[in-house]
Amino acid sequence: MSHVSLKPKSGLPNPLQWLGRAALGMMAEIGRLSVFAAQMSWAGLTPRWYPAQIFRQMVAIGFYSLPVVGLSAVFIGAALALNIYTGGARYGAEQFVPNIVVLGITRELGVTITGLMLAGRVSAGIAAEIGAMRVTEQIDALKTLSANPFRYLYAPRFIAGILTLPLLVLVADIIGVMGGWAVSVYGLGFDSTTYLRNTLDFVTRNDILVGVIKAVFFGGIIALMGCYHGDKSSAGATGVGRAATFAMVGAAVLILAVNYVLSSIFVGIGL
C-alpha cells in the first residue's frame, strides 16, 4: 500500500494525491490516538492502580511546575492590566481594570497559560522519558514482567495530570490577579484596598469553575500527548527528540482548540 508510486509521469507530485494521502494519514492518526486515549482512561479509571507512581507523577507534574506557572501568570496579569488601562482610557473606563483582569485570568488566561507552559514542560518531558524507555526496551521489559504499561506508566501520568492541573490553575489565578494588582497599584495609581475589593466583589464562583473544568481537560491532554508520542517513538536520539516535539506541539494546539470549544459551550449554557 505504501509502495504505490505517488509520482505522476510529469515528475511533479500530484496535489490531489498528496492531499488525499495527507487526509488518510490524519484520519489514521486520529483513530490511533483515540484508541490510545480510551485505553489510557480505562486504565486510569479501573484498578489496579499504582499509588506510588501516581504520587511521584503528582510531584513531578504539579509541584515542580509551580515556579514556571507562577512566573507566567504574574507577567500575563501585569500585561493584561496595563493594556486594559490604556485601552479603557479611550472610553474613560479605566476603573474597570480589576474586573476585566480577574475575568480574563480566571476564565481564559490563567488556564491557557498554565496549559501551554505545561505542554512544554510536562508533555515534552513525558514523551522524552517514555520514548527513551521504548527505545531501550524498558516497555517490553515491563510487559515481560507482567506489568501493563498503560497501568504502570500511562495511567499514573493521566491521573496526576487531571488532578494537579486544576490546583495549578487556582494558583495561576491568584498570582495572575496579583500581577495585575501590582501594576495597577504601583504603576497606575490605583488604591490597593479598592482594587482588591472590586476584584472580589466582581468575580463569581462560575468564573473560577470555568477555568478549573478546562484545567481537567488540559491535564488529560498533556498526559495523553506525552504518553502517546513517547509510546510510538522510533529508535535513536532523533526519534525521541521528535516524540518530544510532537507531544509539545500537539498538546499546545489541542489545548487551544479544546479551550475554544469549551468556552463556546460554557457561554452557550450561561456558565
Partner: peptide, 19 residues
C-alpha cells in the same frame, strides 16, 4: 499471557533496566 510470562525470564540485549 501473564501466566506464560511468569514462567519465562528474559535478559534484554540492552539489559533494559528501569532507570
Amino acid at each position: 499471557r501473564d501466566a506464560m510470562r511468569a514462567r519465562i525470564g528474559m535478559l534484554f540485549q540492552s539489559a533494559a533496566l528501569f532507570d
